[in-house]
Design a protein around this nucleic acid. Structure first.
Lengths: 128, 128, 128, 128
DNA sequence: GTGGTCTAGACCACC
DNA sequence: GTGGTCTAGACCACC
């Protein structure tokens, strides 16, 4: 599996797992129906506790990216379409970053180009 | 002072303080030389511990937004210009957000327009 | 057969089977004497383990909705009339839902109208 | 504190805790701003593990009934107003119960009267 | 003092 | 074999 944990990071392990799976889906490496390793397998592979992986998987389920069942374990099941709440979440997360960039003298074009570069790094996939 | 803490939020209080000062600078409401309230005053005004305000101020100093000295207390002192480290920090913070947006089916134009709207909400200031 | 399993759901499969049969009886689609598919057939049709279907059938038998025998297999055999135990079961199931609705600001009329709509969706059958 | 756990119940402990707090809010016994015992205090009082209480509190936070912060611990903070998702959740929970009642020969008036009785048992509070 | 994260390990329901 | 629940206990961030 493709998960790489930085144990020295301030970011909680479960969030690192979550983010890396989100990014693999964004890149198209993981597609609808693709199965994720079982909680216990992934936990032992990356050397963390079962509960840590379970927390990551459950948050991915809550955000509508995977489904979990006892028969097949966890697999990608993206529920596309964002609502107002999701948009507000994105805005709240992005706003302080934009403010920081402005303070440091970054102009709008530079910021846009940076975002575009990041977006394109996921392969420009706009379908599912 | 203009700081409003949401005690309901998951975001740590010191980070809320930090972000609101960053955003005030980005908006141009706080400019170089403007003084911030003393740690003690701000702490008592918003009803939090002095340590909490001190932590926010110290991180603002570390990121080159304010200066602190015994004589004048804390005041805005923006060191413009970003290095590679700063850029990497921005990239690391933005990447998981962009990935999430892609997963939910947001396309590049929608994302760019969202970022532009947020940028413009700070007054489009690209100077100091 | 009319059973549709949502493998994405948190609801156990045996309970989904059970509920869909209960709802078919409530709608009048299944009537006394109508036979259900054999455990083996239903299991293979919906792609689940035989134990899972057997558990659903056994709970339906326990609640007095179906009968099972070697000769005819499983068939609808509704024992109408509810005792105090059944009433208490309903009350225990409904109470937390009503409490949740009240917390979220739903008033009595709104709740009653919702229940009526659901009731009527079964065809308003009040006989057997 | 008012929480009573039935350790023989099939219902998970964290859900019993959650339901009893929801019901206390519905009854008006707990009002906005009222503080809940700390996770560890409640855990030791009812004789369960800290994590079990934490899970209940976190789900209450997710459904918008309480707020949690490190200074004041958990306290009631009801976000009134239900959206379409909440309504669908209620409908999905109530539908199998209504179906069961119909199968057992309960008519619409009997069911409505039962729901009304349960609703009124919370004090008929329709304000916050 | 408060919740958040994480561990190691157990038992259980569902499949 | 899978995830879900629960325990007992640790360390940490925030306050």
């Amino acid at each position: 599996m493709f998960i790489k944990i930085d144990f020295t990071s301030d970011m909680p392990i479960y969030e690192q797992i979550k983010n890396q799976i989100i990014e693999a889906v964004a890149r198209g490496e993981l597609q609808n129906g693709d199965s994720l390793p079982s909680i216990r397998d992934l936990a032992s592979e990356i050397g963390v506790n079962m509960h840590t992986v379970a927390k990551a998987y459950n948050e991915l389920k809550d955000m509508g990216l995977i489904a979990i069942n006892k028969k097949h374990g966890a697999y990608i099941a993206v529920s596309k379409g964002y609502n107002k709440e999701f948009l507000n979440e994105i805005i709240e997360e992005v706003t302080p970053i934009v403010a920081k960039a402005i303070c440091k003298g970054m102009n709008k074009n530079e910021l846009i180009r940076l975002i575009e570069t990041i977006f394109d790094s996921f392969g420009g996939r706009e379908d599912g």
